[in-house]
Design a protein around this nucleic acid. Sequence first.
DNA 1: TTAATAGTGTCTATCAGACAGTATCTC
DNA 2: GAGATACTGTCTGATAGACACTATTAA
Lengths: 243, 243
Amino acid sequence: MVTEREFLDGYDPRAYPAVAVTVDVVTLTIRDGVLHVLLVERGEQPHAGRLALPGGFVREETLDEAALRELAEETGILPRVHLEQLATFGDPGRDPRMRVMSVAYLAFAPRLPEPTVGGDAAAARWVPVAAATGLAFDHDTILAAGLERARAKIEYTPLATAFVGEEFTIAQLRGVYTAVWGEEPHAGNFHRKVLSVPGFIEDTGATTQRGGERGGPRSKLFRAGDARILHPALLRPSAEERR
Amino acid sequence: MVTEREFLDGYDPRAYPAVAVTVDVVTLTIRDGVLHVLLVERGEQPHAGRLALPGGFVREETLDEAALRELAEETGILPRVHLEQLATFGDPGRDPRMRVMSVAYLAFAPRLPEPTVGGDAAAARWVPVAAATGLAFDHDTILAAGLERARAKIEYTPLATAFVGEEFTIAQLRGVYTAVWGEEPHAGNFHRKVLSVPGFIEDTGATTQRGGERGGPRSKLFRAGDARILHPALLRPSAEERR
DNA sequence: TTAATAGTGTCTATCAGACAGTATCTC
DNA sequence: GAGATACTGTCTGATAGACACTATTAA
């Protein structure tokens, strides 16, 4: 019987076929009521010049750390960002260089300034998700998975609050659902509903300085509550179409 | 400007640090009303002799194919198995040999015969999930993720039918929910509910040959319907505790 | 004044959960 | 017959969605 120590001493990592592991991040934000994704223009081969999700090779760090690092390199400062693993894509041939496994991450960000250029990205910018097609590698597939995850996740978690600032109005929160789902929840029912879900939002006691651009009363300001799941959930209006 | 062709010709895969990618499969089934997971006793270092999730290195195949292959090697034939990607675990140090990324999969299987011994597994067997602790590597964490996914997934998908045979009674289906959730749904309400969800189950017109072991009428036999999500969902009784 | 918006009241259909009741079967 | 189980009926409280209404504000 070989002991674990003897086994490790005689172990040759090079005996296995080379596989590279990257993280690619689907970063979503809402700008002017429209859902946007952060994309970079690839500065290097392969697919130089095409748009792609920001990402890079994993270093001596955890996968979560790698995703956070890539995101920080592209966007600079990172206030209140939610980051979660999405899925791993590793079909042979998805990268022409070699076998590359991409661990995809999903990030929800409040409105950020224009991204800084960094890493091997020729340029990074926010692109409306409707216009984000024809991406490099299999990033169209990864983006689609991220969008579906986002749409489902704001139903039963309070993560919609990750898209707005520290303090927000219920109308702003409704705007998040409208942008992510692509359909607007009923304003009155939405209002009553989010207030009734325990721990979703908390009243700050303050109101906005002025009403809406085109009239209306000042609205109360809220902050995110401490709930981690929403019960009962806010279901998408199109739920019955999913049969 | 380097063309893609020139770039690829000069590319050296060995320039990157060696990373290995494995798939590990959380295979769940129900035996005598108790949720079991398929485990192997490791025949090789590291962690020789300890229980672990079945898995192995990814070959020249997709990740889904690798998971299916590993599962087939451990269990033999695979009727009606549901298989989905769970998450990827890649912390440095999770494997003492080298950097190993494990792409974890989750499988739901109907009751299967005792697994065949194959691959590098000294022995493969079904273990009640309550007894499946102290696993090799970070497999305790992977198993916990798989269990939580399974508990959530049978709420809003018809995947509970993947645990039973082609034809089943409503009581058998209720047994799946009882085993996975750890608490029994109300029999009468469950009955009415599963029949009311469109596309969940279809009446075959047949009944069981005899009633229950300790009496009761014969029950109707059903088969899985064509719904891919359940609407409305069957929520766990403990939903309000999740706040 | 007009139009827009925040927030509330109310009605209806649906659903979850509790409970009871009947029919059918095994032992 | 006793006990267990399949399946159904019914009631109650909660909820989603539709609609209407009031109050407040910008232009």
